[in-house]
Design a protein around this nucleic acid. Structure first.
Lengths: 259, 259
DNA sequence: TAATAAATGTCGTTT
DNA sequence: AAACGACGTTTATTA
């Protein structure tokens, strides 16, 4: 059995010294972290050219690659998982060619010097959970429909209709059919138009009155205009509050079981 | 004058050894690169919880933060530029608190061990240029309108109308008003409906015939149906080809100047 | 600051 | 594989 390789950390190695280390790191599917002076060319869905400068490069074992400048949240260049990495010396420069066959994309990083070369093995099986998503809001409405309004009763959720899926379909206290569209952020024109698409379909199918309620933490200026002109309604509801409801419900479930 | 600090690279330092290094790196606005076992809590627009595991953490001098797992393109947790970093030991763990006041967001990374701690200064003034964007497509159509069709003449671009902006407005060889909507990726239903919005507005204003042309590298299945039913047209055009046209035009400009 | 649309968007789900 | 919508979307532009 092959012994577990130790991690490698090199400060400012020469290109010649870095080459076998990077090659080995890539071929053994380890995490490659590079910092150094480089330029980058990209050709694929779009094209880009990045002049010389010092950046941080991350090559992951799943074939994803990130090139980060010293500022900004998003990488200046990148490739999604599934890329192949090739490394070689060319004209006294170390070139990493990143090739995504499926997407027909190529990226080439040309290094003229390194500040850091590191090969690590990160073991990560930690669980990740996200709360207060749109689906959390939908769940909260289904488990406690009164947060929309007193007497609201959901019939179905994610009902498929021609243009997409109606988030929640129900009836109000007067048995009037009600379409609910949920947004986890401030609702824009787009959300209103999405709701309109569903209403158009529902109105074709039935002649009875239908209510449309847009549910979101806030409503944009231009969105309100259209909403009002269409006769739709708005209900303020934050994803955080919905997450709270689900948390409480989760705790209550056992007592309810014994009712 | 303060002397330029040298970069720091530590392999598997203790939490106690790492603390002053990380603190100093943050306060001196240098790039902080950490690899180690940690867990992450996030609270803001949403909330999330990430159990223990080994990750790569990047703290940039503009106050952006990235937490990368060993796989995937996108960070599992992050904060945009403008965040504040606080570091301290708590119950034998090193805690980095990342606080974004403007967005009311907090993220907390709790380290139980490090594999790598590095503080770097990256100098990067390289120029970045992106080609084959939607605006490149628009430029290409304006400089060489025949790529839409023979005889097409643009009148205006980015014309503001009620719902937004018409990408290109022009007339065809028969002087018929023509609306052009550009997409740099395969056009979906959404693009057709966007074009319809513009058409609805234009049709209100005038009674004369108007043509609607959707320009994109490809047309989605469902999109074609609607397009045909609305009597709109489709023209295949790739952003890469548009970038080529602009490159040629750019090279030609001098000769044209002497014509 | 708010609104609006593009993005090498990415990511997941469903057909 | 294609289509479709959510995303802690992010980012840029404009009113």
């Amino acid at each position: 059995m092959e012994k577990a390789p130790r991690q490698i950390i090199l400060e400012a190695p020469s290109l010649e010294d870095a080459l076998p280390i990077v090659k080995s790191g890539i071929s053994h599917k380890r995490l490659v972290i590079l910092a150094g002076r480089c330029s980058v060319e990209y050709e694929g869905r779009a094209s880009s050219s990045l002049g010389p400068g010092e950046r941080l490069i991350i090559l992951k074992s799943d074939g994803s690659a990130l090139i980060h400048r010293p500022k900004d949240y998003s990488p200046v260049n990148w490739q999604p998982p599934g890329s192949l990495f090739q490394t070689k010396l060319r004209e006294n420069k170390l070139v990493i060619r990143i090739y995504h066959r499926k997407d027909h994309e190529v990226m080439e990083i040309t290094f003229t010097g390194f500040k850091l070369v590191s090969i690590l093995d990160l073991k990560d099986s930690g669980e990740f959970n996200l709360y207060a998503s749109e689906s959390d809001m939908q769940q909260a409405i289904l488990t406690q429909p009164s947060i929309i309004e007193e007497g609201f009763r959901p019939i179905t959720s994610e009902k498929p209709v021609d243009p997409g899926f109606i988030d929640v379909l129900g009836v109000d206290r007067n048995n009037v059919l009600t379409i609910v569209e949920i947004k986890r952020v401030k609702a824009t024109k787009k959300a209103v138009l999405q709701l309109k698409k569903y209403m158009d379909v529902i109105n074709l199918d039935s002649n009875r009155k239908v209510r449309a309620i847009l549910v979101a933490p806030a409503l944009a200026e231009g969105a309100e205009e259209i909403l009002v002109s269409l006769g739709y309604e708005f209900k303020t509801l934050s994803p955080q509050y919905c997450a709270e409801i689900l948390k409480l419900r989760g705790g209550k479930r056992i007592t309810e079981y014994f009712k």
